[in-house]
Design a protein around this nucleic acid. Structure first.
Lengths: 146, 146
DNA sequence: CAATAAGGTTGACCTCGACAACCAATCTTC
DNA sequence: GAAGATTGGTTGTCGAGGTCAACCTTATTG
């Protein structure tokens, strides 16, 4: 029988381990896309790839971090040629950020490697389990965000 | 129908959000223990409380970070009077790190607040759900660590 | 008794997020 | 339609916190 406080304690500890461990995994992955690509920017890059051209402010809310940080990460991606900034036709203040062809192809090369990597470690997880886990994470994040 | 790659993608994103959001929560919690307590040190402090006096090297492997970082975090805890360094009687090179009485009592005061805080946000989660989540995290961490 | 290894500390460096000041464009409101 | 208020972004400064490498001290081992 596990009590609720025990479960919370356990949760906190695992979260801590996860945070550190994930940092390294992302770091590796980022460098596979481009040797100079910073980990944080890699995550935004992936998001941009999936969710088409976006404004910086959209990234802000999606990643829940400061707009200053976003601005710099985007600049970093632009410097590496992975992403383009174009003015938003609908709003003179905004700029749309879109993945370049080079960026897309670089990422594509990494996808296979990544899937293989994940299959190595998460092989026993079914797609449903993975999704259930992601859903729980999302719910947890939502709860924390209040 | 969700495909496995979709689930992985989703998972990666949620993990990213979690990492950032958790950072803030830990930050708050740390300052509740002591206004000058840094978040990373808070986690080590909690671990020390549960796992008795430890050498720095034990923290190193437990948290899987550089010994230089550990050394500084411990120094930080010492400066705040939350922790003591005493020479290890079994090994002249090593020092044992133990929680002070003040440190223990400060932490204790925070436990109630923490439980209340969690109850506010994770109120709908049953103990079983929490544990299931923690277990999944643990499994995930284990997978990542290989 | 060297040589090597292990435990810690420290300094230089890097990532990266928060906060605030600021500019430009847009919206609101009278 | 001009005066604020708001929104989208950029940039400077700062702090947290990690890596790497050099170094000192103490143990261990041949």
């Amino acid at each position: 029988m596990t009590t609720r406080p025990d479960a919370l304690r356990e949760l906190e500890r695992e979260v801590g381990v996860m945070v550190r461990r994930v940092r390294r995994v992302i770091d590796e992955r980022a460098r596979a896309v481009h040797p100079d690509l910073q980990p944080a920017a890699y995550l935004m890059f992936g998001y941009l790839l999936d969710n088409g051209p976006l404004r910086a402010s959209a990234l802000c809310t999606a990643f829940d971090i400061d707009k200053g940080a976003i601005s710099r990460q985007v600049q970093h991606l632009v410097d590496l040629g992975l992403v383009d900034r174009t003015p938003d036709p609908d709003d003179g203040r905004a700029t749309l950020i879109s993945v370049t062809d080079d960026g897309a192809s670089r990422f594509k090369d990494v996808v296979d490697h990544r899937r293989k990597w994940f299959d190595d470690r998460l092989g026993e997880w079914s797609a449903d389990e993975l999704l259930a886990f992601a859903t729980m994470l999302s719910r947890y994040n939502e709860a924390l965000g209040r």
